[in-house]
Computed example of a mutant assay.
Amino acid sequence: MAPARDRRTGFSRRRQYTAFLGYVLAVAGAVVGAVLLVASTFNPPAFSALRMAVASVTTPVATGLDVVADAVTSVPRAIGTWFRVHGENADLRAEVKRTRAILTTARTIAYDNRRLRALLAVRERTPEPVVTARLVGSTASSGRRFALLNAGHMQGVRPGMPVRGPEGLVGRVLEAGPIAARVLLVTDPDSLVPVRRTRDGMPAIAAGRGDGRVDIRSVNATNVRFAQGDMFVTSGTGGLYAPGVPVAQVERAGADSVLAIPFAAPDGLDFAVVERPFMPLPPPPPPRPTAP
């Protein structure tokens, strides 16, 4: 009898079926990949619709897995929090005492600000939230940066709507399906966000790099110095993003263009808020009647 390592697939029906099934799956995968490549090249709208249809099918599964993963990871976190709660309690009480004077000053400034705005009749624009949804996935290994949101047309999500998290701006909706949407992150190379520096209001542009960070570039100025730790928020220019939303913080000092780290990391976010554009564009004028 031949040794086990010298046997061919013909000695076992199971091995024959396994090898045959592997060949079939390999050929089917190659055919599907070729069809998708041709569709994305010659018919991008059809490929986009197909991609969003697949996302609508896989989003509920990804949502369920994300909920299970959160439940499992919350157990050790709860245990660690229980052990640290007493020390943190004392630290928080001391922090409250130190910041009480600062809080009083901030309340006074806020009251004066509201009074002056009322005197000047300044109108505030506050974007209305559309839906709060879960981020079920994001691309972290390619040059493009997208995230998948488990809300779509049925929840009122439309392309172009800004998306933000608790820490800051996440991006904007690029495509929307029935129950899923694809979000273009601020770190994507195609993302450009008008921002301003918090300490002096200097305007700038936050451009994505595709590696999880952004470039802060000065606007209409040269030899602009950026300090390490400078924080930038949305300026409201362009009407899409509401002003005052945190975007990024400068990593190292430099001039004209520096690297910055976004405040909102999609990999660490559970939920995000989809908002309406800050200042929606006016509807197009009706077509003029043609002369007979």
Rank of each mutant, 00 (worst) to 15 (best):
M231C: 15
R13T: 13
Y111N: 10
Y23W: 10
P292F: 08
L25Y: 08
A140E: 14
L169G: 02
M279P: 01
A147Y: 00
G268I: 08
R114A: 14
G212M: 05
T105I: 15
P44F: 03
L37N: 07
R100G: 09
V219E: 14
R8P: 11
T73L: 04
V157C: 02
D190R: 15
T290F: 05
Q228Y: 06
V224P: 07
R172A: 13
F263H: 03
E275Q: 04
R196V: 06
F47P: 04
R197Y: 02
P178A: 14
D215L: 15
Q155K: 09
P277N: 08
M154E: 13
G168T: 00
R213E: 12
A255D: 11
A28D: 15
V67L: 11
V170E: 00
P283G: 09
R8M: 13
P178R: 09
E88Q: 11
D270S: 13
L192P: 02
P289M: 07
G239V: 01
R199C: 12
P45K: 10
P286C: 01
V250W: 03
G143V: 07
R213C: 11
P246F: 03
P45E: 12
V173I: 12
P129F: 01
H153Q: 11
G254L: 01
T237F: 05
D267E: 13
F47V: 00
A69S: 11
R252Q: 15
L103Y: 10
R252T: 13
R134I: 12
G64L: 09
D200E: 05
V195M: 00
P166I: 15
V214R: 01
F226P: 08
F20P: 06
A2D: 08
V173S: 01
A180K: 04
F20C: 10
R98A: 12
D188R: 01
V258G: 04
A71Q: 12
V183M: 05
V170P: 02
P159G: 06
M279R: 11
I261W: 08
T108I: 14
D66R: 10
R15L: 12
G212D: 03
V35E: 14
A221P: 06
D6L: 15
A49Q: 09
G177M: 08
G137W: 02
A69Q: 13
A206D: 01
R125F: 07
Q155R: 11
G80W: 04
V72D: 10
R14I: 13
V157M: 02
E251N: 11
T99I: 11
R84I: 08
V186I: 00
R144V: 02
L36G: 14
V68L: 15
V75T: 06
R125E: 10
R145P: 04
T198S: 02
A78R: 10
G268E: 04
S218C: 07
V61Y: 05
R164G: 10
